[in-house]
Amino acid sequence: MSDEFQDSVVRFSGNVNISNIADAHGILLAALEQNNSITIEIDDLEEVDLTFVQLIESARRSAAEGERSIALRKAAQGAVLQVLQRGGFLDPEERDRTNFWLQGANQQ
């Protein structure tokens, strides 16, 4: 997993899966401790699994509880979008979550 944390932007690239999810967790935690708002870039992710989506969802909820925010720079696509679709994370009834991942786009 190649990642980068700079200012309030966290960039993930390569593979983020169960074998390295602890690293991704540490990066997000550090970013949230240093910033009230972070933006996550996921464009360069090649392979992800459900643990990545769960991590982002958990971080998003925790941030909201602490009056902080997390946003995606662009709507989910590629490997991330596939995991979201397979995992049932794009339920139209869950507008907040679906809007977060798709940024209001009519994709599914």
Rank of each mutant, 00 (worst) to 15 (best):
L102P: 13
A76S: 10
A22T: 09
I70H: 05
S2C: 10
R95Q: 12
A76T: 06
I56Y: 01
Q34P: 11
I21V: 03
Q54T: 00
E57G: 00
N35W: 09
N106L: 10
Q54Y: 00
A30P: 10
L50F: 07
F89A: 06
D49S: 05
M1S: 11
T39C: 04
N17R: 03
L90F: 08
S8M: 13
L102V: 10
R97S: 11
A75Q: 13
K74T: 15
F5K: 10
A59L: 00
S37T: 08
N106C: 07
N20L: 00
H25L: 07
A76W: 04
I18P: 02
Q85T: 10
V10D: 10
A59D: 06
E57P: 01
R68G: 04
L29K: 15
L32W: 11
N35M: 11
E41V: 15
E67V: 06
E94C: 01
E94T: 07
A75K: 14
L28E: 08
L84K: 08
D96Q: 14
A63F: 05
I18E: 11
A63L: 09
A71W: 03
A71N: 06
S2L: 09
L32Y: 07
L55A: 02
N20Q: 03
G78P: 04
A71D: 14
Q85I: 12
S62A: 09
N15V: 14
M1C: 13
A30D: 06
E57M: 02
S8L: 05
S13K: 11
E33T: 05
F89M: 15
E46C: 08
G14W: 12
A22G: 01
V80D: 02
S2R: 15
A71I: 02
N15P: 06
I21M: 01
L81I: 07
S69K: 12
Q34H: 13
V9T: 07
D43H: 13
A59S: 15
D7T: 05
Q54H: 00
